[in-house]
Amino acid sequence: MPLSEYEQRVLEQMERALTSDDPRLANTLQSSGRRPVARYVVAAIGLIVGLLVLVLGAAKSNVIVGVVGFAVMFAAAAWAFAFVPRSRGPAGAVRDDGSVAARPARKRGRQGRAGLMARFEARWDRRRDLGR
């Protein structure tokens, strides 16, 4: 059963309020949530093959085969979790009219690191001065 016009308006207002209050949560709820399932399946197969090679190496008392099996297992696990897509955060804030205001760009590079280091040094100096 479709929603009435009033219910649709209330739902849109709730969406706008949620997006403006907590844009990261709204972005998370709107994302499709697809995970790279094929990557995990291939990694699981690699883990099983590596485990079998490791057990075969232990049964035959061959250290080289055991090390190769462990390396295959490690590589499969590392490959599965190495490139997991991360959320980029909210695209911006939703205005009252429903349009999206883009978030301001972050400054990166040396300036951001220099600011961080300056804050750490200032905090260190304050702690040192309080100890005297």
Score class of each variant (00 low, 15 high):
67 V>W: 12
30 Q>G: 03
95 R>Q: 14
63 V>Q: 11
122 A>G: 07
132 R>G: 08
59 A>W: 13
113 R>C: 00
126 R>G: 04
64 I>F: 14
15 E>I: 12
17 A>P: 00
54 L>A: 03
48 I>M: 13
2 P>G: 13
115 G>S: 07
38 A>M: 13
64 I>G: 06
25 L>C: 02
39 R>M: 11
68 V>S: 03
66 G>P: 00
101 A>C: 04
65 V>I: 15
106 R>K: 11
87 S>M: 09
73 M>V: 02
124 W>I: 09
71 A>R: 05
41 V>A: 15
110 R>I: 08
90 P>Y: 05
128 R>E: 13
27 N>P: 00
103 R>Y: 06
24 R>T: 05
97 D>P: 02
98 G>H: 06
62 N>Q: 14
62 N>M: 08
20 S>D: 15
20 S>E: 08
64 I>V: 11
53 V>S: 00
115 G>R: 15
82 A>S: 12
117 M>W: 13
55 V>R: 03
54 L>T: 02
118 A>G: 10
32 S>L: 13
14 M>C: 09
91 A>V: 04
86 R>P: 05
53 V>M: 10
119 R>F: 12
48 I>G: 04
18 L>K: 01
85 P>V: 02
38 A>W: 15
26 A>W: 01
22 D>M: 05
131 G>A: 14
128 R>V: 14
132 R>P: 03
31 S>P: 03
103 R>A: 14
132 R>A: 10
53 V>Y: 00
86 R>M: 08
84 V>C: 01
